[in-house]
Design a protein around this nucleic acid. Structure first.
Lengths: 156, 156
DNA sequence: AGTGAAACCAGAAGCCC
DNA sequence: GGGCTTCTGGTTTCACT
């Protein structure tokens, strides 16, 4: 495990700005943090090189696509299962957004997005059909709140 | 609630490509889906106009920034609390990634990212100090698995 | 709905200070 | 860190299928 690279407040501001809108131009970015476009490019290039910025992506409104339901399924698995095996139990479902293996009880938390209740039922059935899984408990998501994106913060 | 806009498979492919890397040029995008750059731009513009694409952002490796620990805290709250009040109980913590209110037990799931165990302890204390919260159970995340980004899928 | 071409110019890339 | 030049690539408009 390597020590975190030392980033100053300008770097953190840039990350916050890019997180809100990665299509700002270098000139715009520079203006907001008080740097020239060239200097800003050097900062951003460095953040990419350090692996702090791992990619550029697009935010998609999945509700608009008809995938309107989210859920979390808590998985309990056989005592001898290794983490990789737990992940394998859920990895192949297209409904899976993320799999979190966890310490304690339950053993994993599977974040799902589905079209409707029938679809959720089907996805949970798939999870339960894995040989590793000994039990599930599903929480249906009623609402999601996300914080406004702010500058990232240093780890002192 | 409005009906999902009708997108064809090219639109879904474009969304998948942009999700993997939103910095592709229109010419590159077009080549991969078999369209000209001009036609590709019309597609992307439409997806933005429809609100399917809600923004462009950057992926950040928070571990590299020293925020190495993730957790989920299940919240139980007073019986009379409304969803908005539940969210309010967690909204002000900078450690909060997302708040999911859920149907059943628990009442909400709070996704946290913290620097270390002492920091987690502090964050959970903050959650517990809300007048609404009657109990918490915290799951520490051991690993996170995310699927490779693929084309989005239609909702038939 | 799509194509290809041409013209324009913003902005990224690269180099020098 | 700034400033300058170069040239890619986004954007618009055209006639056309």
């Amino acid at each position: 495990m390597s020590a975190p690279p030392d980033l100053d407040s300008v770097d953190h501001d840039l990350l916050g700005l890019l997180q809100r809108n990665s299509r700002r131009t270098l000139a715009q970015l520079g203006e907001e943090v008080g740097l020239s476009a060239a200097a800003t490019k050097r900062r951003v290039d460095r953040l990419e090189r350090l692996g702090v910025i791992t990619g550029y992506t697009v935010r998609i409104d999945h509700e608009k696509l008809g995938w309107t339901l989210e859920a979390f399924t808590e998985l309990s698995v056989m005592g001898h299962s290794r983490m990789a095996e737990i992940e394998a139990a859920a990895r192949d479902l297209p409904e899976v957004l993320r799999i979190f293996t966890t310490a304690g009880d339950p053993d994993a938390l599977v974040h799902l997005r589905v079209r409707d209740m029938a679809h959720l039922r089907h996805a949970v059935d798939q999870l339960r059909s894995s040989g590793q899984v000994t039990g599930t408990k599903t929480l249906m998501v009623l609402s999601v709140w996300e914080p406004p994106e702010r500058p990232t913060r240093p780890a002192p």
